Every structure is written in C-alpha cells, then in structure tokens.
Simulated scan of single mutants.
Amino acid sequence: MEQIKNDIVDYLKANSFMDNGSSLKDNDSLTQNGIIDSIGLLELMDYICEKYSIEIPEDMLTPENFDSLQGITNMITKLAK
C-alpha cells in the first residue's frame, strides 16, 4: 500500500497543482486543498487504470474513493486483487 501512495503522490506532484515540496496526509482532501480539479480527476482515473491495469466500476466513482490518498489506495487495493 505504501508503494501505491508513493506512486499517487509522485503523479500528483508531476501533474496537478501540488507543489513538489509539500506533503500530503492520508486523509487530506485533494479537492478542498486545491490539489486536483475535475479535469485532473479524470486524468488521475486514466493514470490509475493504466498503471494498475484495472477498470474502475461506475459504482466506485465516489468522492470517498478519489478525494484522499487513503481512499484511492483502498480502491486500488480492492480492484487489483
């Protein structure tokens, strides 16, 4: 799970409004902290699908699964089994 978190943070630093020097806690809101917007969220979803070779079912497209590192990591872990 730590590797997934690191991959997501690296992606966000390279492709979002997140500063390279900033840190992100597991439950920090990506949208409320201005790290990602709606277009960025779509790009993040594409990255996740490609990186982990998974398809994200429509019922998993929820704020709980995409608004924090913890939510994203939990979702990837469930889908990658």
Rank of each mutant, 00 (worst) to 15 (best):
N15Y: 09
E2T: 14
S23A: 09
F17I: 00
D46Q: 15
L61W: 07
L42E: 07
M45H: 08
P57F: 02
K5W: 07
Q3S: 14
D46F: 14
D19F: 05
N15T: 01
E64L: 12
L44C: 10
S29Q: 09
Q3N: 15
L12Y: 02
I8A: 03
N74T: 13
M60T: 10
I35N: 00
D19E: 12
L44G: 07
I76Q: 04
D46I: 15
D28G: 07
E58K: 12
G34E: 03
P57R: 06
I76A: 08
K5G: 03
E50K: 15
E50Y: 08
M75T: 09
N33F: 07
E50H: 13
D10C: 05
G21S: 08
G21C: 04
S38K: 04
S29R: 12
D59P: 08
K5Y: 11
P63R: 02
Y11F: 14
A80E: 15
S16C: 04
E64A: 12
D7C: 09
T62R: 04
V9K: 09
D10T: 12
D37G: 02
I54S: 04
I76E: 01
S16Q: 01
T62K: 07
N65M: 07
Q32W: 08
Q70L: 14
I4K: 10
G21M: 04
I36R: 00
L42V: 14
Y11R: 05
I72Y: 04
E43P: 08
L24S: 01
G34A: 11
Q32P: 05
I56N: 09
I56R: 06
K81P: 09
M18D: 00
Y47F: 15
M18R: 00
I36H: 00
L41N: 03
K25V: 10
I8Q: 01
L61F: 11
G34V: 10
D7F: 10
K25F: 10
I72S: 04
L61H: 06
L24P: 00
L44P: 01
K13A: 03
A80C: 13
S29M: 11
N6Y: 10
L24T: 03
I54D: 02
M18G: 00
T31F: 15
P63I: 05
T77F: 13
N15L: 05
P57L: 02
M1D: 13
K78F: 11
E64Q: 13
I54P: 03
N27P: 02
N15W: 03
D26L: 11
Q32S: 14
N6R: 13
N27G: 09
K5D: 11
M75R: 04
V9M: 10
I76H: 02
T31N: 01
D59Q: 14
I39P: 13
V9C: 07
